[in-house]
Each structure stands twice: as structure tokens, then as C-alpha cells.
């Protein structure tokens, strides 16, 4: 069973989507759209049942963000289950590649924040490498404070922006 699912996942990743029969009842518009897109060159028998584990909201792999304290790059324990799931996916999908994107809140020096965002991305990369992910599957980048997700100017927004995101290369 496991082997079958893995085989499907690799194919799916290469095609920009994948299938997993156990998650059929939670298919989202997004997944249906991707399944439909992938079906164009070689029509699949049942596109509606296709679910990408990376984008399945019920799968921990759909969680991609690690949040940080102010001026800190320590990965808190609460993110370990999520990172373990990604590590498991990456170690079992040797051709998968992720970019980890580090971000900061808007306060303070843009250049220092660029360095801080890089260190946050590197901290997440280090966690994954300690979980046996090959460093060749990971690249890191910092946007510093130039790409805030939350546009407010208060602690709620700042907390959202002190973040590193895992982005799969096919995305």
C-alpha cells in the first residue's frame, strides 16, 4: 500500500499534482483544478478524486510556515511535527526540492532584516537536515521585510511576518 502511494506521489509531483485515494472526500477546488490541468495531456479516469498531499488541508504537509519571536531565529518545538512530515516527504521523494523563504517584520533596518530572514530560513533548513533531508534538496532565500504577508502595523501583523515558508519547487 505504502509503496503504491509513494509511486503515485512521484508521478504526481512531476506532473504538478498527485493522487491519494484516502483523501477523496476533502478535495478542494484548487486540487480539482490542478488535477484537471494534469489530466489534459493524458486524461485520467477520475480527476475528482485526485488530492495532492502537499496541498491537502487535512494533511500536515499543507502547513508550510514557521513563526519566530522578535529578532530571533530559534525554531520552536511546536513546529517539529510539521517539519518531520516534510522531512519524511523529502527523504522519500529524492527528486523533490524546496526553497525556504525567510521573512521579518517591518521594524528596524532593512539590511539587518535581510540577514535575519536568511538566518530564519537557514534555521529551518538545518532542522530538516538534522531529520536526514539532503542539503541538495533545500535552498534558502531571504526577503527580509520586503514581502510582508500581513500589512498591518501592530504586533498581530508583525507576528505573521516573522516567518519562514517552505515552498516546493513545483509550486
Amino acid at each position: 500500500m505504502k509503496k503504491t502511494v509513494l509511486g503515485l506521489m512521484v508521478v504526481g509531483l512531476l506532473a504538478g499534482c498527485s493522487t491519494e485515494q484516502a483523501k477523496t472526500n476533502t478535495a478542494q477546488d484548487n486540487t480539482v483544478r490542478q488535477a484537471a490541468k494534469a489530466a489534459e495531456p493524458a486524461p485520467a479516469p477520475a480527476p475528482a478524486v485526485a488530492v495532492d498531499p502537499l496541498n491537502d488541508p487535512n494533511n500536515i504537509l499543507s502547513q508550510r510556515s514557521v513563526y519566530f519571536d522578535f529578532d530571533k531565529s530559534i525554531v520552536h518545538d511546536e513546529y517539529m511535527p510539521m517539519l518531520k512530515a516534510h522531512a519524511g516527504y523529502l527523504t522519500s521523494h529524492g527528486s523533490a526540492h524546496i526553497q525556504i523563504q525567510g521573512n521579518t517584520d517591518e521594524r528596524g533596518s532593512a539590511e539587518y532584516n535581510l540577514g535575519l530572514g536568511q538566518r530564519r530560513a537557514d534555521a529551518v533548513a538545518k532542522s530538516l537536515e538534522l531529520m536526514n533531508v539532503s542539503s541538495s534538496q533545500i535552498s534558502t532565500i531571504s526577503f527580509g521585510k520586503s514581502k510582508p504577508r500581513a500589512v498591518g502595523h501592530n504586533e498581530t501583523a508583525w507576528a505573521q511576518n516573522r516567518r519562514a515558508d517552505i515552498v516546493y519547487q513545483s509550486e
Binding site: E111, L114, G115, Q118, R119, D122, S139, I141, S142
Partner: peptide, 27 residues
């Protein structure tokens, strides 16, 4: 270079710059 390339600063004689890179680790 891979990673971030930033914070350019010209030397007073204009012949060199200091830059900040993350290609070998942190900035």
C-alpha cells in the same frame, strides 16, 4: 552569488565596494 547579495558601500576612492553575502553561511 547564491543566497542574498546586499548592502553595497563604496570605498572613498570609488575603486572598491564592501558588500554583504550569504553564500558561505550567515550575512
Amino acid at each position: 552569488y547564491p543566497g542574498s547579495n546586499s548592502a553595497p558601500a563604496w570605498s572613498p576612492d570609488g575603486k572598491r565596494l564592501a558588500v554583504v553575502l550569504t553564500k558561505d553561511g550567515p550575512s
